[in-house]
Structure formats: structure tokens, C-alpha cells
Design a binder for these strands. Structure first.
Lengths: 346, 346
DNA sequence: CTGAAAGCGCTTACAG
DNA sequence: CTGAAAGCGCTTACAG
């Protein structure tokens, strides 16, 4: 049996193909009687409506919005901050009638979602500066919003006021008397050294802004921090090893680029008998749900992931309506909990 | 400037359109020299590859797989069990080169993802028996896998051995001496009554199997449970109210259909000064990450959400390869933690 | 290794 | 209120 299409229904009812199309897509363009006659025929023949692929090609829109995550879907769904972001994006898009497609980075040459999936626009979330997926997406000239990523062109961005929260975190440590401080970052390939301008230069946009916040504040007290990093974009094995090495000669305080990184520091410290916060103060970043659950509860820089996701989706939707949305920077602020305390006397 | 298509490149290079198509989609069908000439022209003209919509129509496949969640994307991303499932599905699909599209239920008449999004197949996750989204999807005759949902036809299903875990949970309570037991369910509209056959008849497939497990075990000790439910498919306001009402004359133990429902019981009990587990034993279902974090840690029925997601994706992928996968039932088992204790003496 | 033919299923103006 | 024309951008056999 051949496939049932608009034409099948048209032949059955004895009208033209576009009248059937109108019956489904523009109901008020034809009489109610004819429409119900067409709908009856469709039901009888098992036709459930215009094929989305044909429709997408003819209309030039698909109803789908991509979200690019540099890391694998498995990693993204493990990170509560990413899940919170996706939640707000998916919710906001759904309210506007759009569906979310997860665009993973592909190691295969035959398929590449970023190149092959039909969509009306995309959101780039927390991606490395020149990630292949991101440039590939940019080449498609789709409406794009970047979130905490390096800008690709003049697309609107959603940013975090990383420097403000970082400064508060550093100021908090200074007040507690800390002078030996280590920074844990990504996008910088460094084992455990005094921070230099070269380190700063190699950092991603986001990490760069946090480094600026931390160091500018620490500098007011003449404190020159140590830095531990990885080329990756997440807590990876390299970073874990380097955190371990750093703890051989522990600082009195650590400023981490994420709550998960802070957790890694706390767990490794504990394994070595270093007490948090008595021997070592640890500050995270994100204020993910995890932060409040840890023991001790994590002092961290709060960001509103729900607002971030909503803003990203809203901005992309505005772009699709040919509006000219602009870059938005969301606030951050320190939340003091139990993982920080006065610097130990040496 | 007109849009750049295959034809633009073909004209520029002086070959036919399908040669350009081959350059992109079947590189070994033409000489390396011609191919690189074509790729150069494409780069020069800003052509980033065949348009996915055109390609989808011509090829009859899109590379996208839908996942239908009856509840809103916001609710789904709030539920750790659903997130764990999505994680495994997205990961497994990504490994196979497919992208995941989130198909929300739409209240709008103009857009409906389940009808309008182009995709190669779909996974129906934990949906109500005759949910409109699900029947709409079925009408499209797409390859389908249902997960913990009522079957639509003869599609392969992924099920949980609900009865086994439920029986273990009930047996555990009997051993502890409980005789006044309340069941908390969805899909049954009941405030707080002795369980009857009518209640059982109105339950969804999943809840029905759990009711069977609970009651068959309780029956061995002559215990007739009370039942509290809602027509909804989640912990909703109706269920919250009814749980509150039930706690006016509390049973000694509660068997809940999910960890979130168990949490609701525990919180409301605590608010009334009813101690868990001293006054009231509570058993959940799912063993979500939340369960172990609660205080007291929740006694609950464990299921492997990762295995469930992987199985769902693998089964759908098999369907796409024209294989004939069959229904799979995953095991469940009771995990005893701190929320259950010996029945209080009255 | 390259291309002419036929077609994938639909919609957008526009004319009547 | 209805339909003939033109087109959306691409690919699949197939012939040379």
C-alpha cells in the first residue's frame, strides 16, 4: 500500500491537494462542511496530518530549537546546574510552542547533529571558545544565542557577572585572614604555580572573568594566588590529579570554578586528613542544589540558573521574531555557608 | 542575495547539482580533485552543507528521536528519576548518531510537537493510558517504544517488574508488625477509603501492577489496606490535600508509588508531629538519588533508571533497523533504610 | 567518475 | 470558498 499523503486524501474527496492542506493548516479557509468531509476521509485512510518534513521544507521552519552542550549528554544530565538550565530553556520554549533538541558533539564523521539536524535556531551553552560544534553551527547562519561561551559574531549573549561574585568570594577569604590561596580553573593547562599573565591569557572568557575578579580583590591585600587548571572544560582526570598534587602542600583556602570542583577538593582533602573548614576553606561557584546538601554546606557564589535558561530561550525567541535582543548579564553573589572559616595559624 | 543552495555551488563550479550533493554526502563517489574544488567553492560562497530539511524530505529520515513526557518539561527536569532516564536515553541515542527531541504536551491548538516535529521514531515515557499526545503519535505510525505506559498496539515495551518490588515492600512492613497500611497512588480518584476492586480497575497499568503486588502480599496476613489517590499522574495538589486528610487518622505505615510521594508523606507527617519511622513507617518507590539523602534515609523499591533508559533507546534503535525487538521487563528490589521500623503499639 | 530524470510531501502567493 | 502554478532543497536509482 502506497503511503497516504495529502494527494491521496484529495483524490478520495475529489478536491485539490491544497484544499486538503488548508483543511489541516488553515481551517478557516474553507467551509466547515468540506473540512469535515476531508477530515473524515483522512481518518478513514489513516492520514494523521501533513508530514512534518515536507512541511518544514515548504515553510522554512521546523519548530525545533537546538541546544549545544560541549560535553556529552550523559555529563550534562549529571550536572545539576546544567539540568536546571535545560529545565528553564525547555519550559520557556515549550510555552512558545517550540521543542528542544539536544545537540551532542559527535566523534563520528558520518553524522553530526550540529550540521544535520533541521532546526530554527540554537542555544550554545557553556562551550569552549573554538569548539568545532559551535563554529559548524555558526556557519549554518542560524539564529544563535551563546550562554557563558565565547561570542561567535555579533549574536546576543547571556552572561554571568562572574567578576562580581568572584570578588566577593575573594574578599570573604581575605576577611577570614587567608593569605595562601589556590584557584581551581578549567581552560588553563597548569599544575600548581603562582598565577601569571600567561595563565590569564589562555583562559576561556568565563574563567578569565573569574580570574580577574579573584585576583583584583586578592591584590588589594597583596595576595598572589596559586593556580591549578586543566585544558578541559570540566572536572577531568587531569584536574583531579593536579588537585591531589596541590594538596601535598595545601594552601589555607581554595577558590573553585564550580561546586563540583569544590566537592572534588573537599573529598580529596578529607582523604588526606585535611579538615574543611578548620585546615582548609573551600569556596565553590554556581550554588547548585548540591552545595547546600554537602557537609559542611558549601560557601559558594550563587547564580540563578532558572533565570539564565529563561533568558537564553526568551532571547532566542526574540531573534526568531526578527527583534534585536541584546546581551544580558545576570548577577552573582556570595552565599556564605560552612565550608569557610578563619585561616589556621601556622 | 539569494540563498546559497546545492545549485549555487553547482553553477559556480560548472557541475551538476547531484555531483555537489555527492561531494557532501558520498565523498567516495567522485574524484578527490573535483571534491576539493567543490568544497572550496562552498566555503567561498558560505555554503555549510546540504539543508537538513531538504535532505530529510528526500531521504525520509531526520536523525531525531522524540521523547514524550506527559508532564511539562519543567516537571520532568525536576524529577531525578526522569532526568536519570533521559540521561541514559540521550547518551545511548548520541552514541548511535541520533539526537533527542523533547516532545511536550501542548495546550495550544496551533502547535503540537507530537504532530508537527519531524522525527524517525519516539519513546513514550511514563504516560497516562489514553493521553492525547500518545495517541497522536501512534497515528503517525512512527516506530515507537513505550516505557512504563499502557501499550498502544503491538509496539515493544520497557516495563518494570512492579509487582515483585511491591510485594517485597509489603512483606517488609508485615514483618515489622504493621497492620494498618495506606497506599498512595496516582490514576485513581480516591480520598482515603478501604481498597476495592473498583479502585484497582481504574488504575493505570503501572499503578495496577503495584497495587497487585502490595495487596497480594498484604492479603497473606489478612491486611486490607486503605488507599489514597489522585486522577493525575504526579504528586499534585489534590494528592497533597488527601495525604494531609489521611494523616488526621494516620495508619502505621504507608506504601507510596514514588519517592517524591513518600517525601510528601514524611514532610506532612513531620509537620503534624508524627515521627518517622517511630510513629509512621514510609516506603517509597524508585530509589532516586533523593532517597538516600533524606533523613531518615528512605526505605524504597529500587529500579535501575539507567538500564531503563538504555533499554528504551536500544529497543527503538533496533526498531529503526527493522529488527523485531521484544518487550523487556526490568527487575526491582526493596532497599531497606531508615524510614521503616516496627509498628508502634497502640 | 559524472549527470539527466523523477520524486520526496508540502505550502505560498495569487487568480478566479 | 477553491485550485493551477511554482517552488522549498535535496537524494535515489540509473544510465553512460
Amino acid at each position: 500500500m502506497a503511503r497516504v499523503t495529502l494527494q491521496t486524501i484529495a483524490d478520495e474527496v475529489g478536491v485539490s491537494r491544497m484544499t486538503v492542506s488548508n483543511a489541516f493548516s488553515r481551517p478557516n479557509q474553507l467551509s466547515a462542511a468540506l473540512r469535515s468531509q476531508i477530515m473524515d476521509a483522512a481518518a478513514r485512510l489513516g492520514y494523521s496530518g501533513p508530514d512534518p518534513s515536507g512541511r518544514a521544507l515548504a515553510r522554512g521552519r521546523t519548530g525545533a530549537i537546538g541546544v549545544v552542550l560541549t560535553n556529552s549528554p550523559r555529563d550534562a544530565f549529571t550536572d545539576e546546574t546544567a539540568v536546571g538550565f535545560l529545565r528553564a530553556v525547555a519550559g520557556t520554549l515549550a510555552d512558545a510552542g517550540y521543542s528542544l533538541v539536544l545537540l551532542h558533539s559527535s566523534e563520528r564523521s558520518d553524522v553530526d547533529p550540529v550540521r544535520d539536524i533541521a532546526m530554527d535556531g540554537a542555544i550554545v551553552y557553556s562551550c569552549a571558545p573554538r569548539a568545532r560544534e559551535v563554529t559548524a553551527l555558526h556557519e549554518r547562519r542560524l539564529p544563535l544565542v551563546t550562554v557563558e561561551s565565547a561570542p561567535l559574531g555579533d549574536e546576543p549573549q547571556i552572561l554571568l557577572d562572574d567578576a562580581a561574585g568572584s570578588r566577593q568570594a575573594a574578599a570573604h577569604l581575605l576577611e577570614l585572614g587567608h593569605r595562601d590561596v589556590a584557584l581551581i580553573v578549567t581552560s588553563v593547562d597548569v599544575a600548581d604555580e603562582p598565577l601569571t599573565a600567561e595563565h590569564r591569557a589562555s583562559a576561556s572568557d568565563t574563567i578569565g572573568r573569574r580570574l580577574d575578579g579573584w585576583t583584583s580583590e586578592l591584590a588589594t591585600a597583596g595576595v598572589a594566588p596559586r593556580i591549578v587548571g586543566t585544558t578541559g572544560f570540566d572536572v577531568d582526570d587531569v584536574l583531579r590529579d593536579r588537585i591531589g598534587a596541590m594538596l601535598e602542600t595545601p594552601p589555607t583556602a581554595v577558590l573553585a570554578f564550580s561546586d563540583l570542583a569544590a566537592l572534588e577538593v573537599i573529598e580529596q582533602a578529607r582523604a588526606r586528613g585535611i579538615r574543611v573548614p578548620e585546615d582548609l576553606s573551600v569556596v565553590g561557584f554556581d550554588d547548585s542544589p548540591l552545595a547546600a546538601r554537602l557537609s559542611p554546606p558549601l560557601t559558594t557564589v550563587h547564580q540563578d540558573v532558572d533565570a539564565k535558561g529563561t533568558a537564553a530561550a526568551t532571547t532566542l525567541l526574540a531573534l526568531l521574531k526578527e527583534e534585536k535582543p541584546t546581551t544580558l548579564t545576570l548577577p552573582t553573589s556570595l552565599v556564605v555557608r560552612g565550608s569557610t572559616a578563619a585561616a589556621p595559624r601556622r
